[in-house]
Simulated scan of single mutants.
Amino acid sequence: MSAVRVLRIGAGVEAASLVLLLLNLLTVHAKPLSSLLGPLHGTAYLVVIAATWMLPATASTTSTTSTASTASTASTASTPSTGTRWRALVPGIGGLLVLRRVEKASARPNP
């Protein structure tokens, strides 16, 4: 299973479980439902973070050339950009933010 597919599943579970947790909190506040959804949401959050770190290089990263001015980008050429990784840390919607950034980056033409 690819990292992007794991990320899509994790992002969906993360967002859906957050919505269900908030609905439960605003309505009946059933303790068994909270006990089930809380750990599910936390696990999905961790899966999204791990899947983001496992993503292959995307178009959002800078490609390297042989010039000395771009030598600093050589270490980031095989990983997602730092901004993508930081977005994964946003609780609740981080996975959706990462997916949007990855899809936008893959839609750009490669130079």
Rank of each mutant, 00 (worst) to 15 (best):
residue 1 M to Q: 13
residue 2 S to K: 11
residue 5 R to W: 15
residue 5 R to F: 12
residue 5 R to M: 14
residue 8 R to G: 07
residue 8 R to L: 08
residue 9 I to H: 11
residue 9 I to T: 15
residue 9 I to Y: 05
residue 11 A to H: 07
residue 13 V to Q: 02
residue 14 E to C: 04
residue 16 A to D: 04
residue 18 L to A: 10
residue 20 L to E: 07
residue 21 L to K: 02
residue 23 L to I: 11
residue 26 L to C: 07
residue 27 T to C: 11
residue 27 T to D: 13
residue 28 V to Q: 13
residue 29 H to Q: 10
residue 31 K to E: 14
residue 32 P to W: 10
residue 34 S to A: 14
residue 34 S to V: 05
residue 34 S to I: 02
residue 34 S to P: 07
residue 35 S to E: 11
residue 36 L to M: 14
residue 36 L to F: 10
residue 37 L to Q: 03
residue 37 L to S: 01
residue 38 G to Q: 12
residue 40 L to D: 08
residue 41 H to L: 08
residue 41 H to T: 10
residue 41 H to R: 09
residue 43 T to I: 14
residue 44 A to Y: 01
residue 45 Y to E: 06
residue 47 V to M: 07
residue 50 A to R: 02
residue 53 W to S: 13
residue 53 W to G: 06
residue 54 M to V: 01
residue 54 M to K: 05
residue 55 L to Q: 01
residue 55 L to E: 01
residue 55 L to M: 06
residue 56 P to Q: 07
residue 56 P to H: 03
residue 59 A to P: 10
residue 59 A to G: 15
residue 60 S to R: 01
residue 65 T to S: 12
residue 65 T to A: 10
residue 66 S to R: 12
residue 69 S to R: 10
residue 70 T to E: 15
residue 70 T to M: 15
residue 71 A to I: 12
residue 73 T to G: 09
residue 75 S to N: 14
residue 75 S to T: 15
residue 76 T to R: 05
residue 76 T to F: 01
residue 77 A to F: 04
residue 77 A to R: 12
residue 78 S to I: 00
residue 78 S to E: 04
residue 80 P to C: 04
residue 80 P to N: 02
residue 81 S to F: 02
residue 81 S to E: 09
residue 82 T to Q: 09
residue 82 T to C: 01
residue 82 T to A: 08
residue 83 G to T: 04
residue 83 G to S: 08
residue 83 G to L: 07
residue 84 T to V: 15
residue 84 T to A: 02
residue 85 R to E: 02
residue 85 R to W: 02
residue 85 R to I: 04
residue 87 R to M: 15
residue 88 A to P: 11
residue 89 L to F: 10
residue 90 V to M: 10
residue 90 V to S: 03
residue 90 V to H: 03
residue 91 P to S: 08
residue 91 P to Q: 02
residue 91 P to G: 05
residue 92 G to L: 05
residue 93 I to M: 03
residue 93 I to F: 06
residue 94 G to V: 08
residue 95 G to W: 02
residue 95 G to M: 06
residue 97 L to W: 02
residue 98 V to K: 00
residue 99 L to F: 00
residue 99 L to G: 03
residue 101 R to K: 12
residue 105 A to F: 01
residue 106 S to M: 13
